[in-house]
Amino acid sequence: MTEYKLVVVGAGGVGKSALTIQLIQNHFVDEYDPTIEDSYRKQVVIDGETCLLDILDTAGQEEYSAMRDQYMRTGEGFLCVFAINNTKSFEDIHHYREQIKRVKDSEDVPMVLVGNKCDLPSRTVDTKQAQDLARSYGIPFIETSAKTRQGVDDAFYTLVREIRKHKEKMSKDGKKKKKKSKTKCVIM
C-alpha cells in the first residue's frame, strides 16, 4: 500500500485542523484551538488504489514558523489553505509557496490551493482571484467548507493525484537520464 505524506499549511484560523478532522473523523470542530502540530493517518481508496494518507496539520501562528522547514522537508505534497473571508490569509499563500519551493529546492512541488469556509456569506476573496492565482502557479484550486464537508475529500484526493503525477514524471525523467548515460565512448 502506497503511503502519501501530505502537509496542510496556511495562516492561523483558516480551518486547516477543521478540514483535516472532517476528512479523518467526519465531524466539524467549530471551536478554535490553535494547533502546534498534529499528525493523522487514514486509509482510503483513490482511483481504485488503496493508500495510506499521513497528514500533518501544522501551526499557522507566526511564533511556530521555525518548525516549518522541518515538516516541509518531509512532506510530499501540500494543501495551501486560505479562508475566503480573510484576504490576508490569501496573500500569505505566496509566502508559504515560496518557502516550500526553497526548502524542497524545487520549482515543481505537488500543491493544491484550497479556499476554505465557502459556506460563509462574508467572502472577501473572489473565486476568480483564487483561480487566477492557482493557474499562475500551475496547481489545482478547490473551494471547501469544513463545516458542510463540501470539497473536503476532493481537496485531499486531488493532492494525492498531483503527487502521483509528480512521481510518474520524475521516474520518466530518471529513465531518460539513465538511457543517456548508457551511451559509451570508444577510443581507438
Results as ranks from 00 to 15, higher is better:
residue 63 E to I: 05
residue 52 L to V: 13
residue 57 D to S: 02
residue 40 Y to Q: 06
residue 16 K to P: 00
residue 35 T to E: 00
residue 47 D to H: 08
residue 7 V to I: 07
residue 32 Y to G: 02
residue 10 G to V: 00
residue 45 V to G: 10
residue 47 D to P: 05
residue 8 V to T: 07
residue 10 G to Q: 00
residue 9 V to K: 01
residue 22 Q to T: 08
residue 31 E to A: 06
residue 32 Y to T: 05
residue 18 A to S: 09
residue 24 I to F: 09
residue 15 G to F: 01
residue 9 V to H: 07
residue 7 V to H: 13
residue 42 K to S: 10
residue 46 I to F: 07
residue 8 V to C: 09
residue 59 A to M: 15
residue 15 G to S: 00
residue 21 I to G: 12
residue 19 L to G: 12
residue 16 K to G: 02
residue 21 I to L: 12
residue 38 D to G: 02
residue 39 S to I: 11
residue 63 E to H: 06
residue 11 A to D: 13
residue 63 E to D: 14
residue 3 E to W: 05
residue 23 L to K: 08
residue 40 Y to R: 04
residue 35 T to H: 01
residue 43 Q to F: 04
residue 64 Y to W: 15
residue 40 Y to L: 06
residue 14 V to Y: 08
residue 20 T to F: 08
residue 19 L to V: 14
residue 40 Y to C: 05
residue 11 A to S: 11
residue 14 V to L: 13
residue 41 R to M: 10
residue 12 G to F: 08
residue 46 I to R: 09
residue 50 T to I: 07
residue 50 T to F: 04
residue 25 Q to Y: 06
residue 41 R to C: 08
residue 50 T to C: 14
residue 6 L to R: 01
residue 56 L to V: 06
residue 60 G to V: 09
residue 20 T to G: 15
residue 52 L to W: 07
residue 4 Y to R: 11
residue 38 D to Q: 02
residue 58 T to C: 12
residue 29 V to W: 10
residue 46 I to W: 09
residue 51 C to T: 09
residue 25 Q to G: 11
residue 62 E to P: 12
residue 24 I to E: 14
residue 61 Q to M: 14
residue 48 G to D: 11
residue 38 D to I: 01
residue 53 L to P: 05
residue 5 K to T: 09
residue 43 Q to S: 05
residue 31 E to V: 07
residue 19 L to P: 01
residue 28 F to A: 02
residue 48 G to S: 11
residue 60 G to N: 10
residue 29 V to R: 12
residue 50 T to S: 11
residue 59 A to G: 15
residue 33 D to C: 11
residue 13 G to V: 13
residue 39 S to Y: 04
residue 30 D to C: 11
residue 35 T to F: 02
residue 60 G to P: 05
residue 29 V to T: 13
residue 22 Q to W: 06
residue 64 Y to Q: 12
residue 39 S to K: 02
residue 56 L to G: 14
residue 30 D to R: 10
residue 6 L to G: 03
residue 53 L to M: 13
residue 9 V to M: 15
residue 26 N to W: 15
residue 42 K to Y: 06
residue 52 L to F: 11
residue 14 V to R: 05
residue 28 F to P: 01
residue 6 L to C: 06
residue 38 D to N: 07
residue 11 A to F: 13
residue 46 I to L: 12
residue 40 Y to W: 11
residue 12 G to Y: 08
residue 40 Y to A: 07
residue 28 F to Y: 10
residue 28 F to H: 05
residue 15 G to C: 02
residue 43 Q to I: 04
residue 51 C to E: 07
residue 62 E to M: 15
residue 37 E to Y: 02
residue 31 E to Q: 06
residue 9 V to Y: 09
residue 63 E to V: 06
residue 61 Q to F: 15
residue 25 Q to W: 05
residue 19 L to Y: 06
residue 22 Q to K: 10
residue 18 A to T: 09
residue 51 C to R: 06
residue 38 D to A: 03
residue 16 K to Y: 00
residue 48 G to C: 04
residue 17 S to K: 01
residue 56 L to A: 04
residue 3 E to S: 09
residue 55 I to R: 02
residue 49 E to Q: 12
residue 54 D to R: 03
residue 7 V to Q: 03
residue 17 S to M: 00
residue 47 D to N: 08
residue 22 Q to I: 01
residue 25 Q to C: 08
residue 57 D to C: 01
residue 22 Q to N: 13
residue 29 V to G: 07
residue 30 D to E: 12
residue 18 A to G: 10
residue 54 D to C: 02
residue 57 D to K: 02
residue 2 T to N: 14
residue 50 T to H: 06
residue 27 H to A: 12
residue 23 L to Y: 14
residue 28 F to V: 03
residue 25 Q to L: 09
residue 49 E to I: 06
residue 47 D to L: 04
residue 50 T to L: 05
residue 48 G to T: 11
residue 21 I to R: 15
residue 41 R to I: 07
residue 20 T to H: 03
residue 28 F to N: 01
residue 7 V to K: 01
residue 14 V to G: 11
residue 56 L to M: 10
residue 49 E to L: 04
residue 28 F to R: 02
residue 18 A to K: 10
residue 42 K to A: 11
residue 54 D to M: 01
residue 32 Y to E: 03
residue 16 K to Q: 04
residue 46 I to Y: 09
residue 46 I to G: 08
residue 4 Y to I: 12
residue 49 E to C: 08
residue 21 I to T: 15
residue 30 D to Y: 09
residue 32 Y to V: 01
residue 50 T to R: 06
residue 58 T to I: 10
residue 31 E to K: 01
residue 33 D to Y: 15
residue 28 F to S: 03
residue 24 I to Y: 09
residue 42 K to E: 05
residue 48 G to Q: 12
residue 9 V to L: 15
residue 36 I to K: 00
residue 60 G to W: 06
residue 49 E to F: 07
residue 12 G to V: 06
residue 22 Q to E: 07
residue 47 D to S: 07
residue 33 D to R: 05
residue 5 K to N: 15
residue 6 L to W: 03
residue 50 T to V: 15
residue 41 R to K: 10
residue 62 E to Q: 10
residue 59 A to C: 15
residue 41 R to D: 06
residue 60 G to R: 05
residue 60 G to I: 11
residue 13 G to Q: 13
residue 6 L to Y: 05
residue 23 L to W: 14
residue 3 E to C: 07
residue 62 E to G: 11
residue 4 Y to L: 13
residue 27 H to M: 12
residue 9 V to P: 02
residue 3 E to P: 14
residue 36 I to G: 02
residue 48 G to R: 11
residue 46 I to S: 07
residue 23 L to T: 15
residue 43 Q to C: 04
residue 36 I to Y: 03
residue 21 I to A: 14
residue 51 C to F: 11
residue 44 V to G: 10
residue 19 L to R: 00
residue 3 E to R: 06
residue 53 L to W: 07
residue 29 V to F: 07
residue 26 N to K: 06
residue 61 Q to T: 14
residue 32 Y to Q: 01
residue 26 N to P: 01
residue 37 E to P: 00
residue 59 A to T: 15
residue 23 L to C: 15
residue 17 S to E: 00
residue 18 A to I: 07
residue 33 D to P: 04
